[in-house]
């Protein structure tokens, strides 16, 4: 019976895995549709503010909205160019 259970649990996992993967990918792909439409504009304005002080690549800004339980988390990720970082440290 143990052997049978083993195979059964393997199988049970495949539908569960499918469901979990789908929930994640669908949630991610839905964001532009379900999420607020101010995100692109917000990104643009933030980019302009940061640009006043450091040179950044427009593509180096990642902005995403995640849901964690009851909280919505706005995550902003800006990668500074190496030369920009160097210029800043020499100035300071």
């Amino acid at each position: 019976m143990k052997l049978l259970d083993y195979f059964r649990s393997q199988r049970r996992r495949s539908a569960a895995v499918a469901k979990e993967r789908l929930q994640i990918i669908v949630a991610r792909e839905r964001t532009p549709r379900g999420g607020p439409d101010y995100l692109p504009l917000l990104k643009e304005e933030l980019l302009n503010v940061v640009r006043k002080y450091v040179a950044i690549d427009p593509d180096a800004v990642k902005i995403r909205l995640d849901r964690e339980g009851d909280c919505e988390v706005l995550e902003l990720n800006i990668t500074l160019l190496p030369e920009a970082a160097a210029a800043r440290s020499s100035r300071g």
Partner: peptide, 16 residues
């Protein structure tokens, strides 16, 4: 196949 856990169930798909 759903009963064996090999296939998404109707409730899974509805939920998604």
């Amino acid at each position: 196949r759903v009963q064996k856990g090999e296939m998404l169930s109707v409730d899974d798909v509805r939920e998604i």
